[in-house]
């Protein structure tokens, strides 16, 4: 947990992929609503930079996305998480996990029906 997406360094996002993440979503406050003025805007630019690096590294820049919502929008958060989950499932496991032979999670009950 960090107090602001402005504190999320590029290397933290990169490490998530090294540690086996298939996708990363960075969720910040609404643009224009940053308690620290422009932390979330900075985060967006960092996400863009990491996306470019991931593309260059052959991992795929589309595996990282930034979302913005306010603290009270629980249902919106759930919707974004669902959207990201679908997006990454469509992309499949990251090349790193394929190389490592990481077992893929079994689809949940809900998805089977």
């Amino acid at each position: 947990m960090v107090p602001c997406t402005g504190r999320v360094e590029e290397v933290v996002m990169m490490k998530a992929f090294e540690n086996g993440a298939d996708g990363v979503m960075v969720v910040g406050c609404l643009e224009g609503d940053c308690h620290f003025l422009e932390g979330n805007l900075r985060a967006r630019r960092r996400v863009e930079r990491v996306a470019a690096l991931l593309t260059d590294a052959g991992i795929g820049g589309e595996r990282i996305r930034m979302f913005n919502l306010s603290a009270g929008e629980g249902s919106k958060f759930a919707a974004y998480a669902e959207e990201m989950d679908q997006h990454i499932k469509k992309l499949g496991p990251s090349p790193i996990n394929i190389v490592r032979g990481t077992p893929q999670p079994v689809a949940s009950q809900g998805e089977r029906t």
């Binding site: 090294e18 590294a57 790193i96």
Partner: peptide, 8 residues
């Protein structure tokens, strides 16, 4: 980035 690219 280099580690990711090479492991991939």
């Amino acid at each position: 980035a280099l580690r990711l690219a090479r492991e991939a």
